[in-house]
């Protein structure tokens, strides 16, 4: 059990960051689409954007910021060798992720219940700008939500590893990279929230 494989700690982290940069460009492309269409349809975007409930968006922002804090604390706990705390903190992050997805579910189902979803009759008969807004809203928050789910599963797996002692004070790169992925999810939401819920 105790034969330490030589690990390229920096290489692992570098690889994670390179992956995160590609993620940044993926969401950057979506934000770019948003910006270009906002320029083309400012009034339609305003009408459509005001239909989103900013209090739900704000709640989800607080939830994600808190989840990020817990993930960052988990890394600190791992560095200090506090295994039980690592597991508890990651558990907290995953709970936040679940809370985020529940709120997202209610948001989406309320919108879909009102006949607002890509290709719906209501959007097709309305002005094209509103249809574009909601298409972008669904694809951006959808891909982001997918990242939340993947991040939560990843962290759950890492928590199991931490509990069995495979993530510890001398080898915690797995947790560090998992936390980095989680922070990216938070980072993207920091831009989604004002753009979709607030500025319109």
């Amino acid at each position: 059990m105790n034969h330490q494989e030589p690990k390229d700690y920096f290489g692992a982290k570098l690889g994670m960051w390179l992956f995160l940069f590609t993620e940044l460009l993926l969401f950057g492309g979506l934000f770019l689409l948003y910006a270009v269409y906002l320029k083309r349809y400012p009034h339609e975007f305003a009408t459509a954007g005001r239909q989103l409930d900013w209090t739900l968006g704000a709640t989800n922002t607080v939830i994600l910021l808190t989840s990020s804090l817990l993930a960052a604390m988990a890394v600190t706990a791992a560095q200090r060798g506090e295994t039980r705390r690592v597991v508890a903190l990651i558990g907290g992050t995953i709970l936040c992720a679940a809370g985020f997805m529940v709120i997202k579910y209610f948001e989406w189902s309320a919108k879909i219940g009102h006949g607002i979803y890509p290709g719906s009759e209501q959007l097709k008969s309305g002005p094209p700008g509103e249809s574009v807004f909601f298409s972008l809203y669904y694809i951006t928050t959808g891909i982001h939500g997918l990242h939340v789910v993947i991040g939560a599963l990843l962290l759950a797996w890492i928590a199991l590893k931490a509990r069995s002692g495979a993530v510890n004070a001398s080898d915690y790169i797995l947790l560090e990279n998992g936390a980095l992925y989680w922070h990216l999810v938070d980072l993207i939401w920091i831009f989604i929230f004002p753009l979709y819920y607030l500025v319109l």
Binding site: L180, D186, L195, V199
Partner: peptide, 19 residues
């Protein structure tokens, strides 16, 4: 204004939470 604040928040997350 909103984007400026968002950038500041992103900077904090990257600098400290992401080390």
């Amino acid at each position: 204004a909103a984007l400026t604040i968002a950038c500041a928040k992103a900077g904090l997350v990257i600098a400290f939470f992401m080390h």
